[in-house]
Design a binder for these strands. Structure first.
Lengths: 240, 240
DNA sequence: GAACGGCTTTGACGTGGATCAAGCCGACGA
DNA sequence: TCGTCGGCTTGATCCACGTCAAAGCCGTTC
């Protein structure tokens, strides 16, 4: 099915979107909701490797992922790529660009990606009239601060990897996907970069988890066999 | 001089505060400004070691530092303290608490601290009527995402330490203090925790910087002798 | 189907920074 | 004056993880 087509599908997506609670009728008068829906622009498809935006470009819009997976990354002075995050359906991209008014990172599709684009000036104007939207934006921004601080702690490779798997599964579950069997849409190298590890270390730790019966691994397909065991390993990271 | 006394001083502080541009008359009608000033509550003094708020407490207010220095920190499962940030006069505290609606960290005074307290519900209500306040909140939140991502990169001890000194100096300069001579209000252990290093490593690197003529160190008093050299060392961290 | 290139795994080895241990110094209280 | 306590420094040692190297695997191209 093509998420680019049809309002029925859009509505279904909206129930899992970060904006869902304000986009969907819930106490607002129809005219206000109409305005929000008018403001949303559906974009895509993007193919794996396509740039959604590039570091340094002028900030204009934030995006919600409708389908697919997006990675955000920066290239440092020495040309090394650092992955900042992975964005699943229903999650927002671009909030960190508000302040400098330029995107501070590249956003790159990992597979076939569809987005909802929200013009930020229009959205914040609307937010002054719809407090629910303002609240939601505050919450989304605040949550991103917490997320950014997560991987900043000094944790070892085991803790990082275990927490990554658990958090990834939890986010999938929150969107209605299976929390124990899933396919990683990113390469080992991307995971390594995100966790600030070497790709070889990621590979070795996954093997150890497999040998210990915590997970099953088949290339990029993962099955979590002992969620509690993983959660225990990653507890320092997971408990804020 | 006691920042707790006198409106003249308050006004002087406001010119360097994160909210300064909206608090100070600038196109707003007097009634709206009156409302913002009514909403601000001056609190303090706090003494070194006092908690401003504790992890897990219900979120109600954000704070601007009026005088002194504040550290924010979490205690993980194993009882290890991790410093999340240092907050200088003019900077905001508590923005990351909006989403979970509870403070995710402790905030602790490092010296004598005075604050402006903003009730967040009142502030966000006011923000729907004063777009400038809404914009400023969006900017502050967005900037914090970027700050949190800074120390998350995989940088070595030299890069982290150099970037820390430069950023600290820049923030002091932005508030009108000297950018080359300053006193660190936090212990070596706090710096180490913030940079995810061991205290011994911080000590050794400061000595190396001193031996290389980059800085002068006298206990907690620092003088930057070669700002460009330090900036060069920390360039990967500093350039986003 | 041969050849290529990117991704992943595995093993061998090196190292940056943590850990351990000891000593120094200034503050503070008796 | 002394003891002691916490913060800081310094040296010796250790180890988790990065780096290097090689080989396997898979999809893609011609």
């Amino acid at each position: 099915m093509d998420p680019g087509e049809g309002d029925g599908d859009t509505l279904r997506f909206c129930t899992t979107c970060a904006f869902g609670e304000v986009c969907l009728p819930g106490g607002y008068d129809k005219r206000a909701l109409q305005e929000l829906h008018c403001l949303v622009e559906h974009v895509g498809p993007f193919r794996a490797g396509d740039f959604l935006f590039r570091s340094g470009e002028r900030f204009e819009s934030i995006y919600a992922v409708r389908a697919g997976t997006v990675k955000t990354a920066t290239i440092d002075e020495e040309g090394r790529e650092q992955i900042l995050g992975f964005h699943l359906p229903g999650e927002m991209i671009g909030l960190s660009a508000i302040h400098p008014a330029r995107y501070p990172c590249d956003a790159i599709a990992l597979d076939t990606v569809y987005l909802c684009r929200f013009s930020f000036p229009a959205l914040s104007t609307l937010a002054t009239r719809m407090p629910g939207i303002q609240q939601q934006l505050f919450r989304l921004l605040s949550a991103d601060i917490g997320k950014a601080a997560l991987l900043a702690g000094d944790y070892n490779a085991n803790e990082r990897m275990a927490a990554f798997l658990i958090l990834f599964a939890d986010r999938l579950a929150a969107r209605g996907f299976s929390a124990t069997r899933f396919r990683l849409s990113m390469s080992r190298g991307d995971i390594a970069s995100y966790l600030r590890l070497a790709p070889e270390t990621v590979s070795r730790i996954l093997r150890r988890f497999r040998d210990d019966g915590l997970i099953r691994v088949d290339e990029r397909d993962i099955e979590l066999l002992q969620v509690d065991g993983l959660r225990q390993l990653g507890r320092c990271v997971l408990n804020h």
